[in-house]
Design a protein around this nucleic acid. Structure first.
Length: 553
RNA sequence: GCGCCCGUAGCUCAGCUGGAUAGAGCGUUGGCCUCCGAAGCCAAAGGCCGCAGGUUCGACUCCUGCCGGGCGCACCA
């Protein structure tokens, strides 16, 4: 059981014993100042109205009736009615052994146990290479998957390929034009085509592989041929970059193969119609989106055009309902800000189809404004101008890129200065954290070289760890499981990144003032145990972010 | 015009579902390596938390209205 859960049970027991009502939730925070204890709760103030008592009076009763527990040294009432908890030093030091015993399991929890979650992110169109914002979404999505899994959820990560519809056609036409040019024929790019150089390169590859022009074949067939080829290669390239980035998807689904070819759009449209959730007008089929006020859409949406073709929305509704929700009870989509107008209608559709509102989550990953030497670089796939994810990885490095994106909230637009990122890559915060880990590993190498026998750390005597700095470090380590749980619940991986910097900072300062390898064997072993624990927690934390914890750097 | 996101130190950003005296990195200034890794440590300077009201024991946090920036408002995806 986690520490804060133990404290909560103590508070509840005390309230019950005092004949006071219990709160629905008991929130614990780590006070900014050490004088305010290791944990504090505002329960007495929350309860004041229901209990018809003054907060401080309630707090007094809780403190008086709090059952004895090994974790807690003392409690005190403070301010307008806080209860401050001071942990018992002996218990804290002893807890190190449990963390070491848990090893890579430390930080895991059960807060999402039993949930089946379908998590989609990146899902860039197969019409071009991945760009910077995709790297941001990939870092956040992957970290989120790791967090959710650490809390017991069964997560399926997914990259959805939009290999159908008008964009597919534009790609097919663009690529065909490039191929014709490659063969020396005059051909102009279509109006809505993709002018990027990458299609020129792809056309060259295509020809080198013996691909032909398909003269005389019907247009439908040619577009299918060129489109499929281009999509396959684009997806392949995207997958390769993501793999280099450390992001692997469980599922690569295809709009054409997994939705359209299976007749799902038709199916879901019939279901909607049967339930009276849609209507015909001007030859098109409309979804009654506006009347579902709780979802927030302001107008009805077309599901099937008057031409008979389903819209992207119609296809997507089918996909979510018949594929995603068939395999999961919770769906999380990370989308770009250009899709946020789309969110309300999807929520409305999901609710109309009977899925609880909280089962469908959308996270908007805001744009990355790229700066080069302080000047914004305008990016446009349509104009073929962009900075590739590949270039970013080469210039800055995988760990630094991921960590940088994970130190920002997903819904906050961020500026990424390439020049600064490159120049500062050696003092990027990620190295600060990794350095703490490498430093600790180095201590153990050092010890081994000196022939020092390190006993089993999980049963080492930790009682020599009595200094305030020792205890402060240990108490921070004890926060980790709660941190992970909170970051998962809030879908905020950046909390991990920030916390790791604080932990590293505390360790570096401790290290400066505390000699580990030394004459006093009991003290040395206790400090080695502390170091090993810090390294374990840093490793576990970085692992949740998909960032490596190097042995040396 | 309507909707969503964002305005916090010179810059880039945190501030944990309302808590106690607002933080970090970078940058600036000044110290610290005969001692386990100086990618480190210590210290200083730097703030009307966009503005104005409201809610309450308490507001960077919630509500309203402005100002400023970004993005959306298709039988496109």
């Amino acid at each position: 059981m986690q520490l804060t859960d133990r404290l909560t049970s103590g508070v509840r027991a005390a309230l019950a014993k005092a004949g006071l009502p219990e709160p629905e939730e008991c929130a614990w925070e780590v006070p900014r100042q050490a004088e305010h204890g290791d944990y504090a709760t505002n329960v007495p103030m929350v309860l004041a109205r229901a209990a018809k008592r003054a907060p401080r009076q309630i707090a007094d009763l809780v403190v008086k009736n709090f059952p004895p527990m090994a974790e807690v040294e003392r409690l005190e009432v403070a301010g307008p009615g806080f209860i401050n908890v001071f942990l018992a030093p002996v218990w804290c030091a002893g807890a190190l052994r449990e963390i070491l015993g848990a090893a890579s399991e430390y930080g895991r929890g059960e807060s999402h146990a039993g949930q089946r979650i379908r998590l989609e992110f990146v899902s860039a169109n197969p019409t071009g290479p991945l760009v910077i914002v995709n790297a941001r979404a990939a870092a956040i999505g992957d970290a989120l998957a790791r967090l959710l899994r650490s809390q017991g959820a069964r997560v399926t990560t997914e990259f959805y390929v939009n290999d159908a519809g008008s964009q597919f056609e534009a790609l097919a036409r663009s690529f065909e034009a490039r191929v014709r040019q490659e063969f020396g024929e005059p051909a102009a790019l279509p109006e809505n085509g993709y002018p990027g150089e990458y299609l020129v390169d792809l056309a060259r590859t295509y020809r080198a592989e013996g691909g032909g022009l398909l003269h005389g074949a019907p247009e439908r067939e040619r577009l299918e041929h060129f489109g499929r080829y281009a999509v396959a290669r684009m997806v392949e390239a995207q997958r390769r970059i993501l793999r280099e980035y450390g992001v692997e998807f469980d599922v690569w689904s295809s709009e054409q193969r997994d939705v359209r070819n299976k007749g799902l759009p038709q199916k879901v449209l019939e279901e909607l119609a049967a339930r009276g959730l849609s209507y015909e007008q001007d030859g098109a089929l409309w979804f009654r989106s506006a009347e579902r006020e709780e979802a927030g859409d302001d107008k009805d949406r077309v599901l099937r055009r008057s031409s008979g073709e389903p819209t992207y929305f119609g296809v997507d509704v089918a996909y979510h309902h018949h594929v995603k929700f068939a395999a999961a009870d919770r769906v999380i989509n990370l989308l770009g800000p250009d899709h946020h107008g789309y969110v309300a209608r999807m929520k409305a559709a999901m609710q109309a189809l009977g899925h609880p509102p909280e089962a469908f989550e959308v996270m908007i990953v805001q744009l990355v404004t790229l700066l080069r030497d302080g000047q914004p670089v305008r990016m446009s796939k349509r104009r073929g101008e962009f900075v590739l994810m590949e270039e970013l990885l080469e210039e800055v490095g995988r760990d630094a890129v991921r960590f940088t994106f994970l130190t920002r909230r997903h819904d906050s637009p961020l500026e990424f200065d390439l020049a600064v990122a490159t120049r500062q890559s050696s003092d990027n915060p990620v190295y600060y954290v990794q350095y703490a880990h490498a430093r600790i590993r180095s201590i153990f190498r050092q010890a081994a070289e000196q022939g020092i026998a390190v006993p089993g750390l999980t049963d080492v005597d930790t009682s020599p760890l009595v200094e305030p700095a020792d205890l402060a470090l240990i108490k921070r380590l004890l926060q980790f499981p709660e941190l992970v749980r909170g970051a998962t619940r809030a879908r905020e991986p950046h909390r991990i990144a920030y916390w790791l910097q604080e932990l590293a900072s505390e360790f570096h300062a401790w290290y400066k003032n505390h000699r580990v390898i030394q004459e006093d064997l009991r003290l040395m072993h206790a400090r080695l145990a502390l170091c090993a624990t810090v390294a374990t927690v840093i490793r576990n934390g970085l692992d949740l972010l998909g960032v490596s914890a190097p042995e040396s750097m």
